[in-house]
Amino acid sequence: MSLDAADLEQPRRATADLQQNRHVAAVKPVPFRGGGFVHTRHRFVALFLFVVLVILWEIGSQTGFISNIALPAPSEAAGAMADLFETGMIWKHLSASLYRLVIGWSVGSLIGVTVGLAVALFSIVRAGVSPFVSALFPIPKIALLPLFIIWFGIGEGSKVATILFGVFFPTVIATYGGVDNVDRNLIRMGQSFGLSWLSIVRKIIIPGALPAILSGFRISASIAIILLVAAEMIGAEFGIGAYILMAGALFATDQLIAGVAMLSVLGLTVGWLISRAERWLLRWRA
């Protein structure tokens, strides 16, 4: 009993020693070195920065510090935007562009995913097709525009085709890259349970490649918007790209900025939609 008691005393004495030692050497806390390198969410910083920049820009334009040849005032660009709404032209431009974007992007993505899956699943297709994809992907589709015009006409065909081709290649690459990265063990598991080939593709390979395919979509959607301006260079009466090109030709910089702002809003909207799709389709992820 007494021994146990002595054991219990032990730590207490140790702290007492420490207290006493304090007079000899000062006791201080261990310095904290673990701070920083952590992302914290600042929701309104971007908005705030944007507003501040626009205000500075407006002030610069009003005072003449920024010449109106170099850059129109934001209020002028807003005026051009307001004109678009007033005349209802914005809906003509938007609907024309959206039509081209939606058809070009969805058909390009659909074919891209299909070809990407074929490349990933059949080694004969991979051997045959993937060198072509690698060779054709870096070609600026704008360079092919004259050919597209001969093939598809100056109507909607060549515009949709430009976007479609621009979307197709990154989608193929994202898809087969995604399939290549699907956990082999999951596929082996499927085989070990006697799942059919189609079931393995549908239930294991495609969902497994989905995150990569969706990030591919994010990129291909941006490419589609970039190509919109190029696509509407030829024979387009309406469309955001045509509007921007016309503004450039007329040196109407207020309209130019308004058009570019429309493209930005379009890009943000598309990005937001894809984020929503990701959140829903990949809800199984953390």
Binding site: D183, N185, L186, M189, F193, P207, G208, L282, W284, R285
Partner: peptide, 11 residues
């Protein structure tokens, strides 16, 4: 089979 790494489909 029962696998060491469980082989569950995360989705």
């Amino acid at each position: 089979y029962v696998f060491q790494d469980f082989a569950l489909l995360p989705w």
